[in-house]
């Protein structure tokens, strides 16, 4: 899932500047399940901002709303009538939600209240580990289901490197060596010979190196250009 973390209260106060009336817009999807920008977090932040601004002598009026998905027009369109009442909108969605708001409602300035951090797996309650970098050319089929792009510090395609020590990465002993894990999986499946094949450089043009990516599915579009 997309995982985000709330910005420090101080930073959010700085972003809001001298706004008097603020609408916090939460999102009911990814950031709700990672406890960063759902209805509950919106309520907590609104309450905190009301109190902090009052204590600092420039009382803010802060209202709350949470939509099911901030990254789809259908879900954010109903917000339009109320937006003009606010000096500024603070989004607790991921970066996509913040941009969706700004694109759809150009007259209202929507600011981010979260840092969108990663595509992560909640390995246990309260712990999210990065598992995917959306590189656009999945190689999990070659690496026994463990991604070296997301999980190897060097993003090696032919690992491990010399920095792999006792199963952990030299960058940080808390990072398991992805290539050690891949090797163990290969051993478990009795297919270590598959790892002897040298992988050529990866096609990074379908990742960020090719510029912003775009998918167009003509079969799904409502209007066709004949």
């Amino acid at each position: 899932m997309i995982v985000g973390e709330q910005k420090p209260l101080e930073e959010i106060m700085g972003l809001l500047g001298d706004a008097r009336k603020v609408l916090i817009v939460g999102c009911g999807t990814c950031v709700t399940v990672c406890f960063a920008g759902g209805e509950k977090e919106v309520g907590i932040l609104a309450s905190a901002l009301r109190m902090k601004s009052k204590l600092e002598g420039h009382s803010m009026e802060v209202d709350e709303v949470t939509v099911q998905r901030q990254c789809e027009w259908e879900y954010i369109d109903p917000l339009q009538p109320q937006l003009k009442e606010y000096d500024v909108v603070l989004s607790l969605a991921c970066g996509i939600g913040v941009q969706a708001m700004n694109e759809r409602f150009p007259d209202a300035l929507t600011l981010p209240g979260l840092n969108t951090t990663s595509l992560s797996l909640p390995v246990e309650q309260g712990v999210w580990e990065e598992r995917c970098q959306a590189c656009g050319d999945c190689i999990l089929g070659l690496t026994f289901g463990i991604c070296p792009i997301a999980r190897c510090s060097k993003q090696l395609l032919n690992g491990p490197c010399g920095g792999s020590q006792n199963g952990v990465c030299e960058v940080d002993p808390d990072i398991p060596c992805a290539w050690q894990l891949i090797w163990e999986r290969a051993v478990a499946f009795g297919q270590v010979e598959r790892l002897l094949e040298i992988q050529p450089p990866k096609n990074w043009s379908v990742s960020r190196d090719g510029g912003p990516r775009k998918i167009v599915r003509e079969d799904l579009r409502l209007t066709h250009v004949e």
Partner: peptide, 9 residues
């Protein structure tokens, strides 16, 4: 911690 950040203690 949140109360500290808000300034209430």
């Amino acid at each position: 911690d949140l109360l500290d950040q808000i300034g209430l203690g």
